[in-house]
Design a binder for these strands. Structure first.
Lengths: 221, 221
DNA sequence: ATAGTTATATTCACATTGAATATAACTATA
DNA sequence: TATAGTTATATTCAATGTGAATATAACTAT
């Protein structure tokens, strides 16, 4: 027999870096090691329920983007007993950034995906799997907006893509492509602060995306 | 507590139709109903091992394309007890077509995805989820070749895409796009039979794909 | 030999892309 | 108040890719 757990890969983007939230176990078989937050599945909840629950318990955050990633089942992935885990990944907006790392007694901290500590069990593989998945997904579905404030500038959006894909993009071409998709709504509001020309603020238009999608439109970065 | 099963969605393409292989349960809680083949997970195997095992046991086929799809865990998805299932999907070449539906005592049969019988448990949802996944995947990775003989004509390849995506494609444009990717090798051999000009046979070049992929090439239909 | 069928090549208008350049607008500070 | 520094935004153009149509080649059955 075995037990089943849920682990949630929590992504955020800050300072033009893609980051993941890790927790350090204070005791147990992986004492002192870092890993992605998770818990064992309860008898009366689905895997998705469990993922939502652990996110809420550990971070106080509700209502963020969440999707199933993969189920990992190697016989030796967990020490001592057999544990199969289903990994989810979630996307956190900047305004929720601090809540994620601060709301729990466990030591939680954001790490750049380029500078990860040593990880427990197979969590290193899970994170790498998740990064690859995110890189693919962000180019084929408009989920990147879940990592930005509701209102954002085109440059912020571009920097988000650059951070996740780890590439540089041409500014005018990125603007042109993004705006032509008609998924962004002009907020009629300018960015404040900054010693330069104020940029237009936009927000992602879910309703229009839904409509275009029904007409066969496919998002493609 | 719960048990964990593995279910395999087996796709094939014949007569320009996308098909799935279903089995009819002779007894048990779903007697007489159709479903995708599966089995409970053994203690000493990974989920992928179990998927390979059930495929081999039920069809005698080894070495076919296999990939994890999704893990389904709704509390009421299985009658009487809680069973979480991880669904895999596999792609079968025409030469293995008969072996799949004939090698087992259970009643196995191919069905067009457009004319499915009533299905047990949540297998209807699993199949729909799998079709959507396949449609997306086939456009972004060269996996369609796993549904064709080793040697095939460009029209056969086109008809495969048309069957899976359920759309019509322009012939010259499809040829041009496919050939320009440099993933096909001319077999220096012509199709036989047919009251018309014989078509050139091609095969998919795994090695070249690997090389191109390392250089950052992304397959895109 | 001819009709029927599919293979294969070519054309062209059009849209998209990559890359570069130009101008506008804002702030800090000299 | 002028200017330097910075980012926003617009425009250009060549190159490339796409959708759609047409033309020619090659094969078989009759």
């Amino acid at each position: 027999m075995h037990r089943h757990s849920v682990d949630s890969l929590i992504f955020g983007c800050r300072n033009e870096r893609l980051e993941v939230c890790l927790i350090q176990h204070a005791d147990g078989p992986a004492e002192g090691q870092w890993g992605i937050p998770g818990d064992f599945l309860y008898d009366n909840e689905s895997l998705e329920d469990a993922a939502v629950r652990t996110l809420r318990t550990r971070t106080g955050i509700d209502d963020i983007y969440l999707d199933q990633l993969h189920t990992f089942s190697a016989l030796d992935r967990y020490p001592g007993e057999r544990v199969i885990t289903t990994a989810y990944y979630s996307l956190v907006r900047p305004q929720d950034y601090e809540a994620v790392a601060g709301a729990h007694e466990l030591d939680a901290q954001w790490f750049s995906v380029k500078e990860l500590p040593e990880l427990m069990y197979d969590h290193g593989s899970i994170i790498q799997y998740g990064i690859q998945h995110l890189r693919h997904k962000i180019r084929h579905a408009p989920i990147g907006f879940n990592l930005l404030p509701d209102k954002f500038t085109l440059l912020e959006l571009q920097k988000l893509y650059e951070a996740i894909l780890d590439i540089e993009l041409n500014k005018p071409n990125f603007r042109r492509k993004m705006l032509r998709m008609d998924l962004l709504v002009d907020c009629q509001e300018k960015q404040t602060g900054g010693a330069h020309r104020a940029a237009q603020l936009y927000r992602f238009d879910h309703a229009t995306y839904q409509k275009l999608q029904d007409q066969g439109f496919v998002f493609e970065l």
